[in-house]
Amino acid sequence: MAHIIGSISTSHVPAIGGALARQKQQDPYWKPFFDAYGKAREWLGRERPDVVVILHNDHGLNFFLDKMPTFAVGAADVYKNADEGWGIPPLAEARGCVDLSWQIVETLIEDEFDITTCQEALVDHSVSLPLALLWPEGKDAGAWPVEIVPVCINTVLAPYPSASRCYRLGQSLRRAIESWDDDRRVLIIASGGLSHQLDGERAGFINKPFDLQFMDSLVADPTWITQYSNEELVELTGTQGIELLMWVAARGVLDETPVKQHHAHYHVPISNTATGLLVLEPA
Protein backbone atom coordinates (compact mmCIF):
# COMPACT_ATOMS: atom_id res chain seq x y z
CA MET A 1 0.00 0.00 0.00
CA ALA A 2 1.38 3.33 -1.08
CA HIS A 3 1.67 6.12 1.46
CA ILE A 4 0.23 9.62 0.93
CA ILE A 5 2.59 12.10 2.60
CA GLY A 6 0.30 15.10 2.22
CA SER A 7 -0.56 17.82 -0.26
CA ILE A 8 0.86 21.04 -1.61
CA SER A 9 -1.59 23.45 -3.20
CA THR A 10 -0.16 26.31 -5.19
CA SER A 11 -1.12 28.94 -7.72
CA HIS A 12 0.46 28.98 -11.17
CA VAL A 13 0.88 31.99 -13.46
CA PRO A 14 2.65 31.94 -16.84
CA ALA A 15 4.65 35.01 -15.74
CA ILE A 16 6.40 32.83 -13.13
CA GLY A 17 7.95 30.93 -16.03
CA GLY A 18 9.18 34.20 -17.45
CA ALA A 19 10.63 35.21 -14.07
CA LEU A 20 12.42 31.86 -13.77
CA ALA A 21 13.81 32.17 -17.29
CA ARG A 22 15.17 35.62 -16.43
CA GLN A 23 16.33 34.62 -12.90
CA LYS A 24 14.22 37.28 -11.16
CA GLN A 25 13.74 35.36 -7.91
CA GLN A 26 15.47 38.08 -5.85
CA ASP A 27 13.73 40.96 -7.64
CA PRO A 28 11.59 42.90 -5.10
CA TYR A 29 8.40 42.16 -7.05
CA TRP A 30 9.10 38.41 -7.04
CA LYS A 31 11.03 37.79 -3.79
CA PRO A 32 8.04 37.45 -1.41
CA PHE A 33 6.46 34.98 -3.78
CA PHE A 34 9.49 32.76 -4.39
CA ASP A 35 10.66 32.87 -0.76
CA ALA A 36 7.41 31.31 0.42
CA TYR A 37 8.32 28.00 -1.25
CA GLY A 38 11.36 27.53 1.00
CA LYS A 39 9.32 25.93 3.80
CA ALA A 40 7.58 23.63 1.34
CA ARG A 41 10.95 22.54 -0.04
CA GLU A 42 12.31 21.84 3.43
CA TRP A 43 9.27 19.69 4.15
CA LEU A 44 9.77 17.81 0.89
CA GLY A 45 13.42 17.27 1.80
CA ARG A 46 12.26 15.41 4.90
CA GLU A 47 9.25 13.66 3.38
CA ARG A 48 10.99 12.57 0.17
CA PRO A 49 8.06 11.73 -2.14
CA ASP A 50 8.67 9.34 -5.05
CA VAL A 51 5.53 10.06 -7.04
CA VAL A 52 3.33 13.12 -7.48
CA VAL A 53 -0.33 13.06 -8.42
CA ILE A 54 -0.84 16.57 -9.76
CA LEU A 55 -4.32 18.05 -10.13
CA HIS A 56 -4.09 20.78 -12.72
CA ASN A 57 -5.96 22.53 -15.49
CA ASP A 58 -4.78 22.84 -19.07
CA HIS A 59 -4.75 26.31 -20.69
CA GLY A 60 -5.01 25.35 -24.34
CA LEU A 61 -1.79 23.39 -24.85
CA ASN A 62 -2.88 19.75 -24.71
CA PHE A 63 -6.64 20.04 -25.02
CA PHE A 64 -8.75 22.02 -27.42
CA LEU A 65 -12.51 22.44 -27.77
CA ASP A 66 -12.67 19.59 -30.29
CA LYS A 67 -12.17 17.18 -27.37
CA MET A 68 -12.57 18.88 -24.02
CA PRO A 69 -12.65 16.35 -21.18
CA THR A 70 -14.13 17.06 -17.77
CA PHE A 71 -11.53 14.86 -16.09
CA ALA A 72 -8.44 13.54 -17.90
CA VAL A 73 -5.89 11.14 -16.43
CA GLY A 74 -2.40 10.86 -17.92
CA ALA A 75 -1.03 7.37 -18.57
CA ALA A 76 2.13 8.27 -20.49
CA ASP A 77 5.77 7.34 -19.95
CA VAL A 78 6.79 10.94 -20.29
CA TYR A 79 5.09 14.34 -20.31
CA LYS A 80 6.82 17.04 -22.30
CA ASN A 81 6.40 20.71 -21.48
CA ALA A 82 6.04 22.90 -24.58
CA ASP A 83 5.72 26.45 -25.82
CA GLU A 84 2.24 27.76 -25.01
CA GLY A 85 2.47 30.60 -27.47
CA TRP A 86 4.80 33.06 -25.77
CA GLY A 87 8.14 31.51 -26.64
CA ILE A 88 9.11 30.88 -22.99
CA PRO A 89 11.71 28.03 -23.05
CA PRO A 90 10.06 24.73 -22.03
CA LEU A 91 11.09 23.22 -18.71
CA ALA A 92 12.25 19.64 -18.27
CA GLU A 93 9.93 16.83 -19.26
CA ALA A 94 8.45 14.77 -16.43
CA ARG A 95 8.63 10.99 -16.24
CA GLY A 96 5.24 9.34 -15.79
CA CYS A 97 4.43 6.76 -13.14
CA VAL A 98 2.49 4.59 -15.55
CA ASP A 99 1.70 1.90 -13.03
CA LEU A 100 -0.06 4.32 -10.71
CA SER A 101 -1.79 5.92 -13.72
CA TRP A 102 -3.54 2.68 -14.63
CA GLN A 103 -4.35 2.00 -11.00
CA ILE A 104 -6.06 5.40 -10.94
CA VAL A 105 -7.84 4.84 -14.27
CA GLU A 106 -9.30 1.55 -13.08
CA THR A 107 -10.37 2.86 -9.72
CA LEU A 108 -11.96 6.04 -11.03
CA ILE A 109 -14.02 4.16 -13.63
CA GLU A 110 -15.06 1.67 -10.96
CA ASP A 111 -16.19 4.62 -8.85
CA GLU A 112 -18.18 5.95 -11.85
CA PHE A 113 -15.96 8.84 -12.83
CA ASP A 114 -16.18 9.04 -16.62
CA ILE A 115 -12.59 9.99 -17.26
CA THR A 116 -10.65 10.48 -20.46
CA THR A 117 -7.45 8.40 -20.48
CA CYS A 118 -4.38 9.95 -22.11
CA GLN A 119 -1.51 7.70 -23.16
CA GLU A 120 0.22 10.75 -24.63
CA ALA A 121 0.01 14.33 -23.35
CA LEU A 122 1.81 17.63 -23.22
CA VAL A 123 1.74 19.53 -19.93
CA ASP A 124 1.68 23.30 -19.65
CA HIS A 125 2.80 25.73 -16.93
CA SER A 126 0.18 24.30 -14.58
CA VAL A 127 2.38 21.22 -14.25
CA SER A 128 5.88 22.51 -14.98
CA LEU A 129 5.80 25.52 -12.62
CA PRO A 130 4.86 23.71 -9.41
CA LEU A 131 7.66 21.24 -10.14
CA ALA A 132 10.12 24.11 -10.75
CA LEU A 133 9.04 25.95 -7.59
CA LEU A 134 9.35 22.85 -5.43
CA TRP A 135 12.46 21.34 -7.01
CA PRO A 136 14.55 24.26 -8.39
CA GLU A 137 17.63 22.01 -8.50
CA GLY A 138 15.63 19.65 -10.71
CA LYS A 139 14.79 22.54 -12.98
CA ASP A 140 18.47 23.42 -13.30
CA ALA A 141 19.49 19.79 -13.81
CA GLY A 142 16.76 19.24 -16.39
CA ALA A 143 15.28 16.26 -14.52
CA TRP A 144 12.73 16.10 -11.73
CA PRO A 145 13.35 13.80 -8.73
CA VAL A 146 9.78 12.47 -8.89
CA GLU A 147 7.53 10.67 -11.33
CA ILE A 148 4.11 12.14 -11.95
CA VAL A 149 0.50 11.31 -12.77
CA PRO A 150 -1.28 14.39 -14.13
CA VAL A 151 -5.03 14.62 -13.53
CA CYS A 152 -6.57 17.47 -15.49
CA ILE A 153 -9.85 19.14 -14.51
CA ASN A 154 -11.73 21.23 -17.08
CA THR A 155 -11.87 24.94 -16.25
CA VAL A 156 -11.99 26.02 -19.89
CA LEU A 157 -15.53 25.28 -21.00
CA ALA A 158 -18.50 25.71 -18.68
CA PRO A 159 -20.19 23.77 -17.25
CA TYR A 160 -17.23 22.66 -15.14
CA PRO A 161 -17.57 19.81 -12.65
CA SER A 162 -18.99 20.99 -9.33
CA ALA A 163 -16.82 21.45 -6.25
CA SER A 164 -18.59 18.52 -4.69
CA ARG A 165 -17.84 16.31 -7.70
CA CYS A 166 -14.17 17.37 -7.55
CA TYR A 167 -13.96 16.60 -3.84
CA ARG A 168 -15.32 13.11 -4.51
CA LEU A 169 -12.87 12.70 -7.39
CA GLY A 170 -10.19 13.27 -4.78
CA GLN A 171 -11.72 10.66 -2.50
CA SER A 172 -11.61 8.14 -5.33
CA LEU A 173 -7.98 9.06 -6.06
CA ARG A 174 -7.20 8.30 -2.43
CA ARG A 175 -8.79 4.87 -2.76
CA ALA A 176 -6.70 4.29 -5.92
CA ILE A 177 -3.42 5.28 -4.28
CA GLU A 178 -4.09 3.35 -1.08
CA SER A 179 -4.98 0.21 -2.98
CA TRP A 180 -1.84 0.50 -5.13
CA ASP A 181 0.35 -2.45 -4.23
CA ASP A 182 3.59 -0.48 -3.99
CA ASP A 183 5.47 1.12 -1.13
CA ARG A 184 6.31 4.41 -2.83
CA ARG A 185 5.55 7.72 -1.16
CA VAL A 186 2.97 9.85 -2.93
CA LEU A 187 2.60 13.63 -2.81
CA ILE A 188 -0.56 15.36 -4.01
CA ILE A 189 -0.13 18.70 -5.76
CA ALA A 190 -2.99 21.03 -6.61
CA SER A 191 -2.10 23.68 -9.18
CA GLY A 192 -4.49 26.58 -9.79
CA GLY A 193 -6.20 29.68 -8.41
CA LEU A 194 -6.63 31.59 -6.27
CA SER A 195 -8.91 34.50 -7.17
CA HIS A 196 -8.20 36.11 -10.52
CA GLN A 197 -9.97 37.21 -13.67
CA LEU A 198 -8.19 37.93 -16.95
CA ASP A 199 -11.16 38.80 -19.12
CA GLY A 200 -14.00 41.27 -19.26
CA GLU A 201 -14.72 44.63 -17.69
CA ARG A 202 -14.12 42.99 -14.32
CA ALA A 203 -10.53 42.01 -15.31
CA GLY A 204 -8.17 42.27 -12.36
CA PHE A 205 -10.82 41.16 -9.88
CA ILE A 206 -9.30 39.68 -6.70
CA ASN A 207 -11.10 38.62 -3.52
CA LYS A 208 -8.63 38.37 -0.66
CA PRO A 209 -11.17 37.81 2.16
CA PHE A 210 -12.73 34.90 0.30
CA ASP A 211 -9.37 33.35 -0.61
CA LEU A 212 -8.23 33.46 3.01
CA GLN A 213 -11.47 31.99 4.22
CA PHE A 214 -11.19 29.22 1.62
CA MET A 215 -7.61 28.42 2.67
CA ASP A 216 -8.67 28.26 6.31
CA SER A 217 -11.63 26.05 5.51
CA LEU A 218 -9.42 23.44 3.90
CA VAL A 219 -7.85 22.57 7.24
CA ALA A 220 -10.84 21.92 9.42
CA ASP A 221 -13.96 22.16 7.28
CA PRO A 222 -12.96 20.79 3.88
CA THR A 223 -16.41 20.62 2.31
CA TRP A 224 -17.28 24.22 3.22
CA ILE A 225 -16.61 25.23 -0.38
CA THR A 226 -19.16 22.75 -1.75
CA GLN A 227 -21.99 25.01 -0.59
CA TYR A 228 -21.25 27.18 -3.64
CA SER A 229 -22.27 26.54 -7.23
CA ASN A 230 -19.61 27.10 -9.88
CA GLU A 231 -21.37 30.27 -11.02
CA GLU A 232 -21.23 31.55 -7.46
CA LEU A 233 -17.55 30.62 -7.31
CA VAL A 234 -16.86 32.58 -10.50
CA GLU A 235 -18.68 35.55 -9.01
CA LEU A 236 -16.68 35.23 -5.77
CA THR A 237 -13.25 34.44 -7.24
CA GLY A 238 -13.24 35.50 -10.91
CA THR A 239 -13.45 33.61 -14.18
CA GLN A 240 -10.10 31.91 -13.59
CA GLY A 241 -10.51 31.78 -9.82
CA ILE A 242 -12.56 28.67 -10.56
CA GLU A 243 -9.18 26.92 -10.78
CA LEU A 244 -9.54 26.53 -7.01
CA LEU A 245 -11.35 23.31 -7.94
CA MET A 246 -7.85 21.74 -8.04
CA TRP A 247 -7.43 22.57 -4.35
CA VAL A 248 -10.84 21.06 -3.60
CA ALA A 249 -9.96 17.81 -5.37
CA ALA A 250 -6.59 17.64 -3.59
CA ARG A 251 -8.32 18.09 -0.25
CA GLY A 252 -10.62 15.24 -1.22
CA VAL A 253 -7.59 12.97 -1.45
CA LEU A 254 -6.68 13.66 2.18
CA ASP A 255 -10.38 13.41 2.98
CA GLU A 256 -11.47 12.52 6.50
CA THR A 257 -7.96 12.21 7.90
CA PRO A 258 -7.49 15.04 10.34
CA VAL A 259 -4.93 17.26 8.65
CA LYS A 260 -2.34 19.64 9.98
CA GLN A 261 -1.39 22.83 8.20
CA HIS A 262 2.35 22.72 7.82
CA HIS A 263 2.71 25.95 5.90
CA ALA A 264 0.46 28.61 4.37
CA HIS A 265 1.27 31.72 2.40
CA TYR A 266 -0.85 34.23 0.48
CA HIS A 267 0.51 36.98 -1.75
CA VAL A 268 -1.17 39.49 -4.09
CA PRO A 269 -0.47 40.11 -6.92
CA ILE A 270 1.65 38.02 -9.24
CA SER A 271 0.65 39.29 -12.66
CA ASN A 272 -3.16 39.52 -12.27
CA THR A 273 -3.44 36.68 -9.78
CA ALA A 274 -3.83 36.20 -6.05
CA THR A 275 -1.33 33.46 -5.21
CA GLY A 276 -1.67 30.96 -2.44
CA LEU A 277 0.47 28.15 -1.09
CA LEU A 278 -0.77 25.57 1.36
CA VAL A 279 1.07 22.50 2.68
CA LEU A 280 -1.13 19.97 4.46
CA GLU A 281 -0.08 16.73 6.08
CA PRO A 282 -1.99 14.01 7.90
CA ALA A 283 -2.21 15.08 11.55
Binding site: L157, D199, E201, R202, A203, V234, E235, T239
Partner: peptide, 13 residues
Protein backbone atom coordinates in the same frame (compact mmCIF):
# COMPACT_ATOMS: atom_id res chain seq x y z
CA UNK B 1 -31.90 31.14 -16.28
CA UNK B 2 -28.28 32.14 -15.86
CA UNK B 3 -26.74 34.14 -13.10
CA UNK B 4 -25.58 37.51 -14.34
CA UNK B 5 -22.17 38.61 -13.07
CA UNK B 6 -21.30 42.22 -13.90
CA UNK B 7 -18.39 42.61 -16.30
CA UNK B 8 -18.04 38.84 -16.62
CA UNK B 9 -18.90 36.40 -19.37
CA UNK B 10 -18.63 32.73 -18.50
CA UNK B 11 -17.36 30.79 -21.53
CA UNK B 12 -20.14 28.25 -22.00
CA UNK B 13 -21.86 26.64 -24.96
Amino acid sequence: CRRSIPGTAIFDG
